[in-house]
Design a protein around this nucleic acid. Structure first.
Length: 171
DNA sequence: AACACGATTTCG
DNA sequence: GAAATCGTGTTT
């Protein structure tokens, strides 16, 4: 028995998936069958080609390719030359959307949590539905949350920089 | 081939 | 307030 989230969970609009991921358990398989479990506490939605804050807005490139693929895969990218960002692709083929994991109960900040978990570019394209080293499980938690503007994307301009697409679990 | 810059974090 | 640090998209 495993409460792993299935393909259908990810094949929805990013604005549904991003808040739905709050409280879910992110599981990382370590060596010798050990598992590390983290609880997602903060997410951000990046929605398609029109969203000027979304990397896919630049078009289909080697880096953004996975976002155009099926939901449930990881979109990893390096920022500022030193921090790996972990994103989960949502929606179906041809619809470039992704959820940035911005915080875990165990670590605040998108760059800090990947460092804590030891996840990097080698996870680009990893399929959370089938992978043996990383996936997300149902937790049973259903916590209240708040929505607010996304961080660090003022360059996207109106109306994108003000869209309330950042979701955080309430304290 | 060269350049500018970023979905961040840390230190002074 | 500013540095660290490099892959990626853009321009030459």
């Amino acid at each position: 028995m495993e409460g792993r989230l299935d393909r259908q969970f990810y094949r929805r609009d990013v604005l549904e998936v991003a808040p739905a991921l709050l409280g879910k358990h992110l599981v990382l398989a370590g060596e010798e069958g050990q598992r590390s479990v983290y609880t997602i506490s903060e997410t951000e939605a990046y929605r398609g080609g029109e969203d000027r804050a979304c990397h896919a807005n630049k078009g289909r490139t080697a880096r953004t390719e996975v976002m155009f693929g099926d939901g449930g895969q990881l979109y990893m990218y390096l920022i500022y030359g030193m921090y790996w960002m972990m994103n989960i692709v949502t929606a179906g083929q041809g619809i470039p959307q992704a959820v940035l994991i911005r915080g875990l109960k165990e670590a605040a900040g998108p760059g800090r949590l990947t460092r804590l978990m030891g996840v990097d570019g080698s996870y680009y394209g990893e399929d959370l539905v089938a992978s043996r080293r990383i996936w997300i499980e149902e937790s049973g938690l259903n916590l209240s949350y708040s929505a607010g503007p996304r961080i660090g994307i003022d360059y996207a301009g109106d109306p994108w920089k003000d869209m309330p697409w950042r979701f955080t679990i309430n304290p």
